[in-house]
Write a protein that binds this DNA or RNA. Structure first.
Lengths: 196, 196
DNA sequence: CAGAGATCGTATCAGTTTCAGATCATCTCA
DNA sequence: TGAGATGATCTGAAACTGATACGATCTCTG
């Protein structure tokens, strides 16, 4: 184990010997570190968002895309469908989202943002950007942009395909409120009324 | 919700509207998808490595760096120290690593690779590279290299600082090598007696 | 030198997350 | 019409994570 690590992030990449097959050349290593770093810091930054980073992502998706089912949302975000139920429960409890029936398919609950949801998202976004900047502090502004774009591109490519299989695992670790068992949700009466 | 992903990876980045604040522009989203994709596919690829991807990373680190303590290794890899114990247990059970006492500090167990460990690592590495190529299939070869390097650089920079807090109040700056404390001279012949 | 405080690896426990599967209502299709 | 599939929710169990305790050992200070 080689002793001292560079104190200057700029030296970091320069010190990586890409021919030595060391841990720093392992994609899995850097992905894990970045991801866990993001989860940890992100959880703090969006602590007031039910569901933490995952709840935040739900808000992002539903405020920028067409209303859709919980299941599709789960796929889109790479979140387990069961966990998605609980995340939306939490968001709904805080009046940040509303579940509405899909008129064309009564199995589906569409997820809609409330005004409060929009507002919280705005502040949460700012907080997260700060965290992200810190996380990528070792990179220049250009490099940060580049990393964002490459990651997104990779995620949208084969990466995302593999990741967004049905009922995928999710490891964003902010605690979702523990489910209260035997808590079958009452069927909203207004929903039954809107039967076509 | 436009759920369908582009079939041509080349179109992916072209379709991302970086001004719309959609989910695809979220670093947390792409990080999560990539990380989970890696974990899932990587677990399959290194299924015969005890501890999966994490066990693999242990092998990488101990075969390329100086012998060090489990704790330092845990920090280096961003793994919880308790989990590290179990991972090494598993690796040791399969005779892929050996724990040896550190002559200068009898609390420390250094982790050494065996020949079998080296051999398994070689095949595991090949399998993982295949997985990684698939994961980054949406990127050109240059882009893949770029992503690897940027991620590593970010991980080694501030990112890693935030990530390497597996041990609660660890104030350490990145996984630290074995402490450079003023070491006492080795205790003669105490070695065999300290074996647990 | 003695003792306080810190550290390392391991054990233990509890809470959280993940996963698989069941259920009910609803939809699709032959 | 009915079989098979689907979406949301529920349930139980396994896996994971994190906190903490503990014994052995180390470091440092008076």
């Amino acid at each position: 184990m080689h002793a001292s690590l560079p104190t200057s992030p700029t030296d970091a990449a320069a010190q990586i010997d890409w021919t030595a097959n060391g841990i720093e050349t392992e994609l899995g290593w850097s992905l894990a570190l970045m991801f866990h770093g993001y989860s940890r810091a992100g959880s703090v930054a969006v602590a007031d968002v039910p569901g933490g980073p995952r709840g935040y992502q739900v808000l992002v998706a539903i405020t920028t895309e067409e209303p859709t089912s919980q299941l599709a949302l789960a796929h889109r975000l790479g979140i387990d469908k069961t966990a998605m139920t609980y995340i939306i429960d939490a968001l709904e409890t805080d009046a940040l989202v509303e579940r509405r029936p899909d008129l064309r398919d009564r199995r589906i609950r569409q997820v809609h943002p409330t005004e409060a949801g929009h507002a919280l998202l705005r502040t949460a976004r700012v907080a997260l950007r700060t965290v992200e900047d810190a996380l990528m502090g070792g990179l220049s502004a250009d490099e940060q942009t580049q990393l964002r774009q490459l990651l997104a591109k990779a995620a949208l490519g084969t990466g995302a395909t593999a990741a967004s299989l049905p009922d995928t695992n999710s490891d964003l670790n902010l605690p979702v409120p523990a489910p209260e068992r035997s808590r079958r949700r009452p069927q909203p009466t207004t929903e039954t009324e809107t039967r076509p």
